[in-house]
């Protein structure tokens, strides 16, 4: 792991909903060009934690944090940080596919590209093709780029959302249970995709599916009732967990 520098890290991060604590005092580092899985039972705070990483948590009613989140060493909660610009560097894909229903497939992919000024047509076409190829969707949609995005299947819609997220070339991609709403085939394609994408991006993925975590991730972090219980290389977490709770969870004894 020494080869990979830390891209994104949290220091003593706690997240609150009003006075309710969602995440307690988590310090973690995510290394560049690797896949990091966050696992744990429902309500353990892993999604809340993920949403602090691109400042989506603060959009929740009374959502606030203490502690620090560092992207390449810079605190993303510093007062001078522009949240919109930040979210263009840390993209996010959600549980349910969320293509923009009024836009075509092409327009969906370009949605994030238009925000820093409209690139010339030729360049835009290339960026769209690149993003769709990387999202393993190009072959299926190249003949109908200008038709509606909601006509795609659920799995295709989710890959379109991945394409939309990677098109502006973010540094980090956050995936919040990206396969929860998909059938096994759709899930498998997303998993393969995640594996491919780590060449270019740093990926943090929340998942309920432990096999999925074991298959795609380099490190795994186990959350339980808002605290980070154990963090380590995926292989070690799944074969020789140090913590009893982690072991109980991954062997299916609770959760």
């Amino acid at each position: 792991m020494a080869d990979f520098p830390i891209r994104l890290a949290t220091e003593n991060l706690s997240a609150f909903y009003g006075e309710t604590v969602g995440v307690k005092n988590v310090s973690l580092g995510f290394t560049t060009n690797q896949v990091h899985a966050l696992i744990g039972p429902s309500g353990c705070g892993k999604s809340t934690y993920l949403r602090t990483l691109n400042r989506m948590h603060e959009l929740s009613p009374a959502g606030r944090i203490t502690g620090r989140v560092l992207l390449d060493g810079d605190d993303i909660y510093a007062p001078r940080v522009n949240t919109m610009q930040l979210r263009r560097r840390i993209g996010m894909v959600f549980q349910k596919p969320t293509p923009f229903p009024t836009m075509s497939i092409y327009q969906n992919v370009t949605a994030g590209l238009m925000l820093n000024g409209r690139p010339p047509r030729r360049a835009l076409d290339e960026m769209v093709e690149k993003a769709l190829r990387e999202a393993a969707l190009w072959d299926e949609v190249k003949d109908r780029l200008h038709s509606s995005a909601v006509a795609l299947s659920g799995g295709q819609q989710q890959r379109l959302c991945v394409a939309r997220t990677i098109a502006p070339r973010p540094d980090v991609i956050l995936l919040d249970e990206p396969t929860a709403a998909l059938d096994p085939q759709g899930s498998q394609r997303i998993e393969e995709l995640v594996f491919q994408l780590k060449r270019d991006f740093t990926i943090v993925i929340v998942t309920h599916n432990m096999q999925q975590a074991a298959r795609v991730s380099d490190t795994t972090t186990f959350f339980y009732v808002g605290t980070m219980v154990e963090h380590g290389p995926t292989k070690q977490i799944f074969t020789r967990p140090k913590n009893e709770q982690t072991e109980a969870y991954i062997t299916g004894r609770f959760g």
């Binding site: 691109n54 989506m56 959009l59 919109m84 610009q85 996010m92 969320t98 923009f100």
Partner: peptide
């Protein structure tokens, strides 16, 4: 759906946009 709004915000859309 709220998810659509979140998707746009997560992409770096300003609130008004």
């Amino acid at each position: 759906p709220h998810s659509l709004r979140e998707a746009a915000l997560a992409l770096g859309y300003p609130r008004w946009r």
